[in-house]
Design a protein around this nucleic acid. Structure first.
Lengths: 142, 142
DNA sequence: ATTGGTGCAAATGCTTTGCATAAAG
DNA sequence: CTTTATGCAAAGCATTTGCACCAAT
């Protein structure tokens, strides 16, 4: 695979984000640096880059695939409300990872373990609190 | 939601399977008992049944959703080769589940944890061994 | 009579593919 | 000059939706 200008810019752009975007989310920002970029080529290039191990392709976190410039193993946290995916780490999580590794080592039929954390992200939490505040106010005004 | 004849048969059929089929895989077998069943209605009914908590909808295990008549929490094992999904249980797995529950309890921002085992299923293992045997024989014959 | 269920076909959303052109080695 | 990359439009696949008809309360 050739690391063309287009691919370098896609890679650079993705590296600058910690949001694990979908192809669709990535596209508008990329168009600024690459006005002729087509969505088809973006898909092809994300696929190529991930096949080369230069980026990670995340499947099964919603209808669309997400991409991550960070290739080394780490946990993800997905918001049940908005679908956004962020990295997750904590002492407990690291302990958990250790036990997971042990489990994989103990059973030869297991090659890997997919682990994903789910909850409500800070942004959605705020939004939800605000909207319930507003509902209270509405009631008071009636 | 009304538990119509159609839905009862879909539910019964799914209960008889331990393969966690996709809508597509379920369809042909169901057509025998329900000749007029449309794929659209199957999707709608699987959706309704899962919303009622009568079956489990599994997302993120490939391009198609899978459905499971067993609603109580349990681990799944997915074959990296053929995509088939089966249940997974072992003493180590139960220990793992306990730690996962602790982790969820310890961090209030976490609502749930998605855990999935991956490897190569027995059927594929056999198939792969056979085909490598054949390749050896081919070499000998040359 | 009103509500909910079904079949069918069309629409949707995300992604892939075919093909002609362009760039890189 | 052969291979690889790109843009565009069309196709693909899993799923959802609109609508007319039907069944059950």
């Amino acid at each position: 695979m050739r690391l063309t200008r287009q691919r370098r810019i896609i890679l650079g752009h993705l590296t600058g984000l910690k949001t694990h975007p979908t192809a669709d989310e990535l596209y508008p920002g990329l168009k600024e640096s690459l006005p002729t970029l087509s969505l088809g080529s973006l898909y092809r290039n994300l696929e190529s880059l991930s096949k080369e191990g230069m980026i990670a392709k995340m499947e099964g976190c919603g209808p669309s695939k997400r991409f991550d410039a960070c290739v080394k193993e780490h946990f993800h946290f997905q918001c049940l409300n908005c679908g956004a995916v962020s990295d997750y780490d904590s002492a407990d999580a690291r302990e958990f990872r250790d036990l997971a590794d042990k489990l994989v080592a103990s059973d030869p039929s297991i090659r890997s373990l997919k682990i994903e954390f789910r909850g409500v992200c800070h942004e959605c939490e705020k939004r939800i609190n605000k909207s319930s505040e507003n509902k209270l106010k509405d009631k008071e005004n009636k």
